[in-house]
Simulated assay, not measured.
Amino acid sequence: MIKVSLHGAEFFALHGFYPEEQLLGNKFILDIDVEFHTGADLTGDHIADTVNYEQLYIIAAEEMRHTRKLLEAVAQSIADRIRVDHPYVDRIKVELKKLNPPLPGRVAYSSVTVTNDK
């Protein structure tokens, strides 16, 4: 089993349930883990034999541009796109953190995690 991860990817986006959140925006941190089996000889040193984390970032960046009310919807859309582009992946885990969510007290972040198993 191979695990490829992208952790701490930072985005500014307009996700949020309240209209003010969709107007003002917020900072988000994204973590993605994908696990898969490969029959390839990884000593061959070919990027085609693995999941390119640059592609994971591009998928995430494209999906983060689509404003949604729920973080769950954003995380699911990222997982769904990864599944379409990499159908051989056994497990996809997407964690999306919203920094300083608009709550009455100090909260570092809120988060959702979507796990997609084959």
Rank of each mutant, 00 (worst) to 15 (best):
A9S: 09
L23N: 14
Q55W: 05
L24C: 08
R106S: 13
L103E: 00
E54L: 13
V89D: 00
G105A: 06
L70A: 12
R106A: 11
P104F: 02
L23D: 12
E21S: 04
R65Q: 15
A40C: 12
Y18A: 14
V112K: 08
E21A: 08
D33P: 03
A60E: 05
E63I: 05
A73R: 05
F28W: 02
V84W: 05
L23H: 14
T50P: 04
Y88C: 12
R91L: 07
P19S: 08
I58R: 11
P19I: 07
V112N: 09
V74I: 10
L24G: 05
S5K: 10
L70P: 14
N116T: 06
A40K: 01
H7Q: 13
E63T: 02
G105K: 12
I92Q: 04
G44Y: 00
P19A: 11
P19D: 07
H37P: 09
R83K: 11
D49K: 05
R106G: 01
G16M: 08
Y53F: 15
N116Y: 12
E63N: 04
D117Q: 15
H66G: 08
Q55H: 11
A79N: 00
T50R: 00
F12M: 13
A13F: 07
D31V: 07
L24S: 02
L24A: 12
P87G: 13
L70H: 05
D41E: 10
D80V: 00
P102T: 08
T38K: 00
P101L: 05
A13T: 01
R68A: 13
D45I: 06
Q76D: 15
I82Q: 03
A61S: 14
V4N: 01
A40M: 06
F28D: 12
D80K: 05
A48M: 02
E95Q: 13
L103C: 06
E10Y: 07
E72M: 04
I47M: 14
A79D: 11
Y88V: 13
Y18S: 14
K98T: 04
V89I: 11
K93W: 02
V34K: 03
E62N: 15
D49Q: 10
I58M: 07
E10S: 14
I29R: 01
V84A: 08
I29L: 12
A60F: 03
Y88I: 10
H46M: 10
A73L: 08
D49I: 10
D85Y: 03
D45V: 01
D90T: 09
T43V: 09
F12G: 13
S5A: 14
I29W: 01
D90N: 13
T43E: 15
K118H: 15
L99A: 14
A13W: 01
A108S: 14
I29Q: 03
R65D: 15
S77I: 09
N52K: 03
H7I: 03
K3H: 07
T113N: 05
P87N: 04
F12A: 09
A60R: 05
E54G: 10
Q55T: 15
I2R: 06
I59R: 02
G25M: 00
Q55I: 15
E72Y: 00
T113I: 08
E10P: 03
Q22Y: 02
K97H: 10
E95D: 11
